[in-house]
């Protein structure tokens, strides 16, 4: 049995279907919408980001901070 939180999420998604189908958003619009949804996310506590360049491709290290060096 899914949790109430999941039921709420599902209701939101289902309610989004009809307006989406009517509007038929373009791919750039969908990309923008997904990016904007990401603004509401927050990193877990004690996790840090570091940009990386993987042969010209944007990437990120996502990790806990390294422990302090002994001595």
């Amino acid at each position: 049995m899914p949790s109430p939180q999941h039921t709420l999420l599902k209701q939101f998604l289902v309610a989004s279907a009809a307006p989406l189908a009517r509007r038929r958003p373009s791919l750039p619009t969908m990309r923008l919408a997904v990016e904007m949804m990401a603004f509401g996310q927050f990193m877990p506590w004690d996790i840090f980001l570091e940009e990386a360049d993987v042969e010209g491709m944007a990437a990120e290290w996502i990790r806990r901070p390294a422990p302090p060096l002994a001595g």
Partner: peptide, 24 residues
């Protein structure tokens, strides 16, 4: 993109106790 999944990957890295490399 990196933006859309940053928090999910962060949660995974935290729970697994290792670094994660996310690529775009």
């Amino acid at each position: 993109s990196l933006n859309t999944h940053r928090a999910l990957v962060g949660s995974l890295a935290q729970r697994c106790g290792v670094a994660a490399l996310a690529i775009n």
